[in-house]
């Protein structure tokens, strides 16, 4: 009797659990679902007084129309060049410094690491004006360099890499040292191979961050429009499609910009979570 009751309670709890999960998932998907549906609507459908869930007849032509009106491929190209370059360099600089902080002993190590951590507390807004000024001084404003160079070292990346590298046993490095390997050699042939999952995590984080970054590209590319990245392009969509006849194309353009990231992530998600678990985020 008692057992039976317990089982019932458990079933009820499980039912509530999955209801909440599904309810949350519904709200998470809703904006994306609506975006996709609305991207196929006519302007009349989008502006009708009773909101429509689905277009009467999907307007696939919207997707071609958008490409004719805005330089979407150029935005893609710019975003990709910037994000991939920054990611590759950040992965390198972070593991480099992370190795030094985790495994090499030298005076000032602790204070320098504290300094790196504290840089993360500085708001980007302190840097906007001076770095813009530097870019102008170097003559980089009409060049990818202005979008790339200010981001090639990341305090967070150094911190993450140090946490990973600390878990590599010292004995491994010491035996290589006894064999006469230089520190650089150890970094290349022992640290880097063991670091692959961590590098993937950091790489994905950096790439997503750069791909979505808005403020800095907005500031830099106002004077050089050929460098505009996707988010800056999105923010100008309402300018490009300001009339009622073209209003619905804003949403079509958004699909172009949202879908690739979500699809890429679907593929990489496993790596991403594994990276976090390995980094020992639970017990920093």
């Amino acid at each position: 009797m008692n057992k039976n009751k317990k089982a019932k309670v458990r079933i009820l709890l499980e039912f509530i659990r999955y209801s909440i999960i599904v309810f949350g998932a519904f709200w998470m998907i809703l904006p994306f679902f609506w975006l996709f549906s609305a991207s196929l609507m006519t302007p009349e459908e989008l502006l009708s007084d009773v909101p429509k869930w689905l277009p009467a007849k999907p307007q696939w032509n919207n997707y071609l129309e958008v490409l004719k009106r805005i330089p979407l491929l150029m935005y893609y190209k710019n975003s990709f060049i910037v994000a991939i370059t920054v990611t590759l360099i950040v992965v390198f600089t972070s593991s480099f410094s992370g190795y030094s902080f985790a495994k090499l002993r030298f005076p000032g190590r602790k204070i320098m690491f504290r300094f790196v951590l504290s840089t993360m507390m500085f708001p980007v807004f302190i840097f906007l004006i001076p770095v813009y000024y530097l870019m102008k001084l170097f003559g980089w404003l009409d060049n990818y360099l202005s979008l790339i160079v200010p981001f090639v070292v990341s305090g967070y990346g150094i911190f993450l890499m140090r946490q990973f590298i600390m878990t590599i046993p010292d004995e491994l490095l010491d035996s290589a040292r006894i064999d006469g390997a230089s520190e650089f050699r150890i970094y290349i042939s022992i640290i880097l191979p063991l670091l692959k999952p961590a590098l993937a995590t950091l790489g994905i984080l950096t790439f997503i961050g750069q791909w979505n970054s808005f403020l800095w590209p907005l500031i830099v590319t106002t004077s050089s429009q050929h460098l505009m990245t996707l988010p800056v392009g999105i923010s100008r969509l309402s300018l490009a499609f300001s009339t009622t006849e073209t209003q619905h194309l804003i949403l079509t353009a958004l699909v172009y910009q949202v879908i690739p990231m979500v699809v890429v992530f679907l593929y990489l998600q496993r790596y991403y979570i594994r990276g976090f678990v390995l980094s020992g985020f639970g017990n920093i």
């Binding site: 998932a25 998907i29 609506w34 791909w211 979505n212 988010p231 999105i234 979500v262 679907l266 998600q269």
Partner: peptide, 21 residues
């Protein structure tokens, strides 16, 4: 895995796009 993917989708979406949607 499916749930986590659904809940994570907004994180990889540009904030600018989220604001517009």
């Amino acid at each position: 895995v499916l749930w986590r993917f659904i809940y994570f989708a907004p994180v990889v979406t540009p904030q600018v796009a989220i604001g517009t949607i």
